[in-house]
Each structure stands twice: as C-alpha cells, then as structure tokens.
Amino acid sequence: MNHGHGSDDRTGAAAMDCAGAMDRLFDFLDGELGPETEVRIRQHLEKCGHCFDEAGFERRFLAAVQAARAAEVCPATLRARVRDALRHAGWTEAAGS
C-alpha cells in the first residue's frame, strides 16, 4: 500500500538516523511510506543491527496477529440468521451460494 505521504519524501536524501527510522517503522512495515523514505529506511536497517532487530521483532509480531485472524470466524448460526433475514427482505439465494 502506498497512500502518498509525499511530505515524508521532501526531507532530502540525507542518511536516516535510528530515531527517524524507528519513528516511521510501522509506516514502513505497513507499506504506507513514499518510495524515497522507504528506501532510506531500508538502507538504515541494512546498516544498523539494533534497528534491524527491532524491525524483525515488529514484523514477526504483526505476522502473528495476522495469523490469528483465522481463529475468529462468523458462527454458522449467525450465517443462517443473516440469510434468513435477507430472504425475508427479498433476497433470492442462488443455487450454490
């Protein structure tokens, strides 16, 4: 995802320090940065072991949260209830839907 945080990219090509990289770490991991800032953070992480470890931890944490998504699904009773309500409202259930 890139939603055009253009101001992030107007800071020039100076090397990014640890504070700057950590301040934008979640934006980086979420793919929410402009391309120039993303490159600068990537370059910083390649050079800084501490920040590299921080990024690795947050990346693993976010992956674990995403994996937990499958644990919570809509109960079958609610699916049936919604379909019943929709049918009552005029919805026609196609075969196989």
Binding site: R69, E72, V73, P75, V82, W91, T92, S97
Partner: peptide
Amino acid sequence: PDAHAAFSAVALTAIDDVYR
C-alpha cells in the same frame, strides 16, 4: 434479481470480516 447473485458472491463472502 440479477444483482442478488452478485450480492451473494461479493458481499456475503465477507461475512467473517464483518463479524470480526
């Protein structure tokens, strides 16, 4: 009527997400 199938295929398949 022809929109019902699209509703089923597109909207109803997202019920897990809406529930969460």
